[in-house]
């Protein structure tokens, strides 16, 4: 169990602490009166700086993450804060199929292609929470902002809905929410991680293809992997410095 128990213990226990503290009346289920908080009561954003690791070798394309994200964040239908892409590639250098039926929310169907597939893999996608982000740069009213813990978020109360950030994001991670008429995007489940819980997609992943970590924590597993292994980011040529790191990216992935 190793890693996953460690992850669960750490995040789960922290969840107990903060969850019990913040929303005890509604959600004591995260912690009971007897359990002592393991961490300071307050969540201090300056103590954290998050990173996200996606292992494409492990992803099985079940789409549970997409489904969990939809439920956790009430994402409008037809729009996605996270989605899973399937790449099917032939060795002739030409034939290539990429698909993501409804973002992969119901999983994928067996593939029937006209060509002989020599490699295939899934790539989960989401907001990269870039450090040098084009979307915050272009927001005319400063309604897109970066938090101290490194998240790129939208101020729904002041977003004017011009859609410039949607155009500026090279990853297609932003969309115009048809109900709020503002820009909308992945928050890395800020309401969960600030209670020391894992983002819904990470918790839903059955194979640990998605991992979430604190880059300021010297003992963090994600931080260790990013530091010691060969990780890639999407469209590195744009110099957006994403904080979503990928293991096993293919040249066909954009």
């Amino acid at each position: 169990m190793g890693l996953c128990r460690r992850d669960f213990l750490r995040w789960g226990l922290m969840g107990l602490a903060a969850g019990g503290m913040v929303t005890r009346s509604v959600y004591p289920i995260y912690g009971t009166e007897e359990e002592e908080p393991k961490r300071g009561l307050e969540y201090n954003p300056e103590d954290h700086y998050y990173g996200y690791l996606i292992d494409t070798y492990k992803c099985i394309g079940c789409g549970m993450c997409v489904q969990a994200c939809k439920m956790e964040n009430s994402v409008p239908e037809k729009f996605f804060r996270t989605w899973v892409e399937r790449y099917l590639i032939a060795d002739n250098g030409e034939d290539l199929v990429v698909d993501s039926p409804h973002g992969g929310i119901s999983g994928f169907q067996p593939e029937v292609t006209k060509f002989n597939i020599t490699k295939g893999f899934f790539v989960p996608k989401m907001c990269n929470h870039c450090q040098n982000t084009p979307c915050i740069q272009v927001c005319p009213v400063g309604a897109s902002y970066m938090t101290e813990d490194g998240l790129v978020l939208v101020d729904f109360k002041h977003c004017i809905g011009c859609g410039y950030c949607v155009q500026a994001c090279p990853y297609g991670s932003r969309f115009m929410n048809p109900y709020t008429h503002t820009a909308d995007k992945c928050t890395w489940c800020y309401h969960r991680i600030s209670r020391y819980m894992l983002p819904a997609c990470v918790q839903a992943c059955p194979v640990k293809a998605r991992r979430f970590g604190d880059l300021k924590d010297p003992n963090d597993e994600v931080r260790r992997i990013i530091a010691t292994e060969r990780v890639g980011v999407l469209q590195p040529d744009l110099l957006t410095k994403p904080k979503c790191f990928y293991l096993g990216l293919d040249k066909e992935v954009v």
């Binding site: 037809k78 729009f79 996605f80 989605w83 892409e85 099917l88 034939d95 290539l96 199929v97 990429v98 698909d99 993501s100 409804h102 973002g103 593939e111 029937v112 292609t113 006209k114 060509f115 996608k125 859609g163 949607v166 155009q167 990853y171 297609g172 991670s173 932003r174 969309f175 115009m176």
Partner: peptide
């Protein structure tokens, strides 16, 4: 049959501007 066609990001299905 999956066609070797055109894949748009799922959020990119409409023209916004």
């Amino acid at each position: 049959m999956l066609e070797p066609t055109y894949y748009s990001f799922p959020n990119d299905l409409h023209i916004h501007w």
